[in-house]
């Protein structure tokens, strides 16, 4: 049994090494965003200069607002359309249902490079063109399948008899949905909404092909800055993004678990 204990110990060590690999570059980037030298020279000297200069960078600020706006609108649209579609897929039996469910996977499985370039061609061809509206169209389409999958998973735990019970007590279809079904799927809807926000806020590839110089999102702006050369301001804004999106994921995980237990 001694070998078992040694192997278990090695296993734990291995996990910590993996975590180091996953987090080291992120931690270093965060540290460097507080370092005086713009070329990441050591020794380390503390400064918040780069964060301060972020506020002067109008391009980054306007791109950030665009990103937030698009992510929030995407979340709202995805939650409404996604919850409606999930309910329909759960409640009703009809021919072609399997096909409709299968259609949710291409947007998830096809590389964003292909979807993004296809959107660019099509939106250009039909006159929508590029810009924030095109980006919004694309983001909703990318995030919607995730929301439907997450809400549907929550619906799997729903007992249809609850709806029938409410009906036999005299509730109409709208009351049944708003008072019984919606409260039940709420954790799924919130988790799905957070997913949608994350998919949109972190989305780079599709936004990249659909943006124009004036109408762009934060990741596209960051990519442009990286390709021009490293700037410490990008470290600062990247650190903020990482912290925000990780916090968002922790929130999502909370709601997911909440969904799993009850």
């Amino acid at each position: 049994m001694a070998t078992t204990r040694i192997l278990e110990w090695l296993g734990r060590l291995y996990i910590w090494l993996l975590l180091a690999f996953l987090y080291l570059p992120i931690i270093i980037m965060a540290l460097m965003s507080f370092n005086v030298s713009p070329f990441y020279q050591l020794p380390f000297e503390w400064t918040t200069e780069w964060y301060a200069s972020l506020w002067q960078n109008d391009q980054l600020i306007s791109a950030t607002w665009n990103s937030l706006e698009i992510a929030i609108i995407t979340t709202i649209i995805c939650v409404v359309l996604g919850a409606a579609a999930s309910l329909a897929l759960f409640r009703y039996e009809f021919r072609g249902k399997k096909f409709l469910q299968a259609l949710l996977f291409p947007p998830i499985a096809i590389p964003w490079l292909i979807t993004g370039t296809a959107m660019l061609i099509f939106f250009f061809g039909v006159g929508i063109g590029r810009g924030l509206f095109a980006i919004l169209l694309g983001h909703v389409a990318l995030a919607l399948p995730y929301v439907i999958v997450v809400v549907s998973a929550r619906l799997q735990t729903f007992v249809p008899e609850l709806e029938e019970a409410a009906r036999s007590l005299g509730a109409n279809q709208w009351q049944v949905t708003s008072r019984v079904t919606l409260p039940w799927i709420m954790p799924g809807v919130i988790a799905g909404g957070l997913f949608a926000f994350a998919v949109s806020f972190d989305q780079f590839v599709v936004s990249y092909f659909l943006s124009t110089p004036g109408q762009t999102t934060l990741p596209v702006e960051i990519y442009a800055a990286i390709r021009k050369g490293f700037t410490p301001e990008i470290n600062a804004v990247s650190t903020i993004i990482i912290v925000v999106s990780m916090a968002l994921m922790l929130l999502t995980a909370r709601f997911f678990k909440f969904g799993g237990e009850k």
Binding site: Y92, E93, P107, M119, V140, A141, L144
Partner: peptide, 27 residues
Amino acid sequence: SRSGLRSALPLLLPAYLWLTVAIFLPL
């Protein structure tokens, strides 16, 4: 409510219309 595409359609249409316009037609 257990049968039929007709009741499901209004709920499904917006989502799938969006996917059609932004994913399937572009492809």
